[in-house]
Nucleic acid binder design. Structure first.
Lengths: 180, 180
DNA sequence: ACCTGAACACCGTTCAAGT
DNA sequence: ACCTGAACACCGTTCAAGT
């Protein structure tokens, strides 16, 4: 019993650190969220985090996995909607993660772990995008290139601020150019 | 004479700091280039840089202006080449600046000065891109959207590694989708 | 006007020690 | 196994002082 209880509490502690880190990283970004800040918000000593994670980038990755899982659920729920709606939902989801995606790109050059995470993530997105293209009737020989184009347009929309109407227009135009 | 000489030396000193900073920032990126490193390479005390620049982001902007001017010259030299060649030249130029463009994006949230520089730069690129679209025969009503798309594809190519052949393919595909 | 040495507050991370 | 206090090296930046 005691053994079990302690085991549960351990999981809770790590979970709490991760949830707190997620909130702070989403709201304030990587550089503005110090390890000390996370520790304080989680109610532990600054170096305690290092018992659960190798370093700050490791915390970032744990948070990224949560964020991605959440976004996937939201987008997959629209399985039967037209492609445009799903793309817009995806953008909305990633945008709610604040500057996290930009942070990933800027950490890639510092941390090999982040680089590996980024590369895996990117090729996953690419595969999904390619199947969407084929499913939407595109020629297999061109699907890969068009998938990349669409991803880059989405990334551009995420990197630069747009109101909803403009975003809608640009996505529509991209899909029109690709599928006409 | 003495007056003049000192004036010249002043310009030389600032110029040297900037050239050294450009080299370091291009090679090692923003975070890996400390003010102390720049100062040492320029042969001055670390805080001397603060006489010429308000802060580190100010140094970054001075370097960015140099890099952009250089790229503009290279691209404008191809005035009469087809659009595809000019786009590829632009990508090549920006790529030679290493991670500087990614660094700009990640500094935007920290420094208002960098944000302003970024916004100005971005709208300049957008205007140029729109005129290219119109010049290439696109309908005026769609030129703005297609210009944005093309810019985002270019940014995507810059943010992610591609060999020359793949890059060529993606640019060709993008132009084909836009102009067919 | 131009430059410096010394200091400040903060950062990510480590280490030896406690339970 | 889990957590801490104290310390380390480094960072951007400031300040008082020198010429």
């Amino acid at each position: 019993m005691a053994r079990n209880k302690r085991h549960v509490e351990q999981k809770i502690k790590k979970e709490e650190i991760e949830l707190v880190a997620m909130q702070l990283l989403k709201e304030q970004g990587y550089d503005n969220t110090s390890m000390a800040k996370i520790a304080k918000a989680a109610g532990v000593a600054p170096n305690t985090i290092y018992w659960y994670y190798e370093n700050k980038d490791d915390v970032l990755i744990a948070v990224l996995n949560r964020v991605v899982a959440q976004a996937m659920v939201a987008v997959l729920a629209l399985q039967n909607e037209p492609l445009k709606e799903r793309v817009l939902k995806l953008i909305e989801q990633v945008e709610s993660a604040g500057s996290l995606m930009t942070d990933v790109h800027s950490r890639v050059s510092h941390s090999n772990t982040v680089k590996e995470w980024h590369d895996r993530f990117h090729s996953m997105v690419e595969q999904l995008s390619i199947s969407e293209m084929i499913r939407a009737g595109l020629d297999k020989s061109e699907a890969a290139l068009d998938a990349k184009m669409l991803i880059y347009v989405i990334e551009g929309l995420l990197a630069h601020p747009h109101d909803l109407a403009e975003r809608d227009l640009i996505v529509s135009q991209a899909l029109k150019r690709i599928f006409n």
